[in-house]
Simulated scan of single mutants.
Amino acid sequence: MIRIGGILVGLGFAVVVLFSFVIGAYNFATEEKQGAAEYEFYKKPEKADFAHDGTLGTWDLAQLQRGYQVYKEVCAACHSLKFVAFRDLAALGYTEDEVKALAAEWQVPGIDPNTGEDILRPGSPTDNFPLVYPNNVAAAAANNNAIPPDLSLMAKARADGTNYIHSLLSGYGPIPGELKEKYPDFETPPGLYFNQYFPNLNIAMAPPIAIEDQVSYADGTKATVQQMSQDVAAFLTWTAEPKLVERKQSGLPVLGFLIFATILAYLSKQQIWAAVKPKKKG
């Protein structure tokens, strides 16, 4: 009797699961799709030409320095780099004295040695980049309830991160007529901005790079929107993975060693078993 009851319970459970599956499949096939504009008009990041791309790629130090300048003069107003230390900037080609001078341009939290009170002091090479906001509540209050993310690892946190950053920064614009014609109800709410490289097409961040010559490059490079977007994307790729080039360069010797070791092992096997004759069948 207990066995029969167990079988009936199992059958009842299977029927419920099957019924739920059928209903769910029917609703999925017949209900009107919501938010289709986001799927149809979202653009994947466009491929840009970066010096560090490819197996033999290397850092373009001039571009990384320009990217740092864009970050400092534009992005640092809202976004932190809390996992990067000022001394790390030496990898961009700056001298020790230049790193000290760059660090001193920032104000970092410190303690007054005489009173023990919290103060702000000029940064030193051993300091990390300071936080823009003391906490998420302050960040949200200053940015229409949107919390600006830390950019230290952004290039690793997004798929195709380098191209994503470059495309996003240069992808602001009006709603295309084709989208408006096909989806008349689609709109960008107040406080948001249209960007086809952002997954839901509307982003809370105002266009940070909006006009040419927003930054005056020290090396004389023309500061177009595309150029500034590409430079800061390269810089943020370096902050996310500063050993990227070294890691790729170490792969070739390792691959060569593995090929050599494989050939050596095969020749050794041939030498060891050369005197052993296979038995004839039959």
Score class of each variant (00 low, 15 high):
2 I>N: 13
5 G>D: 04
9 V>K: 10
11 L>W: 09
11 L>D: 00
11 L>K: 00
13 F>K: 10
16 V>T: 13
16 V>S: 11
18 L>G: 10
19 F>M: 11
19 F>G: 11
20 S>N: 13
22 V>M: 09
23 I>K: 15
30 T>N: 11
31 E>Y: 08
36 A>W: 04
37 A>P: 00
38 E>L: 08
42 Y>I: 01
43 K>E: 15
46 E>H: 05
47 K>A: 14
49 D>E: 13
49 D>Y: 06
53 D>W: 01
59 W>T: 07
60 D>G: 07
62 A>K: 13
67 G>A: 01
70 V>S: 03
73 E>G: 00
77 A>P: 00
77 A>M: 09
78 C>S: 02
78 C>W: 02
80 S>H: 01
81 L>S: 01
83 F>T: 13
85 A>F: 00
86 F>R: 01
86 F>Q: 00
92 L>T: 03
94 Y>D: 12
96 E>M: 05
96 E>Q: 11
98 E>V: 01
101 A>V: 11
104 A>L: 03
105 E>G: 09
111 I>F: 03
112 D>I: 05
112 D>H: 01
113 P>I: 07
115 T>G: 00
115 T>V: 10
119 I>F: 03
128 N>R: 10
129 F>G: 03
130 P>V: 03
134 P>G: 06
138 A>Y: 01
138 A>T: 07
143 N>I: 04
143 N>C: 02
149 P>L: 04
153 L>T: 05
154 M>W: 14
157 A>G: 11
158 R>G: 00
160 D>S: 13
161 G>Q: 02
164 Y>H: 14
166 H>I: 07
169 L>F: 10
171 G>Y: 06
171 G>Q: 09
172 Y>S: 02
173 G>R: 09
179 L>V: 02
182 K>I: 12
182 K>N: 04
184 P>N: 10
184 P>W: 09
184 P>S: 09
186 F>R: 05
187 E>N: 10
190 P>F: 12
191 G>M: 04
192 L>N: 03
193 Y>L: 02
196 Q>K: 14
198 F>T: 02
203 I>V: 12
204 A>I: 03
206 A>F: 08
207 P>V: 03
208 P>F: 10
209 I>S: 07
209 I>Q: 06
211 I>P: 00
214 Q>P: 00
214 Q>C: 07
216 S>Y: 10
217 Y>R: 03
218 A>W: 06
220 G>P: 05
224 T>D: 07
225 V>K: 07
232 V>L: 01
236 L>Y: 06
239 T>I: 03
240 A>Q: 06
247 R>H: 10
247 R>Q: 04
248 K>W: 05
249 Q>K: 12
254 V>Y: 13
255 L>C: 04
258 L>I: 11
259 I>M: 14
261 A>T: 07
261 A>G: 09
263 I>H: 07
264 L>I: 12
269 K>F: 15
270 Q>N: 09
270 Q>W: 09
275 A>L: 13
278 P>Q: 10
279 K>A: 14
282 G>E: 13
282 G>N: 12
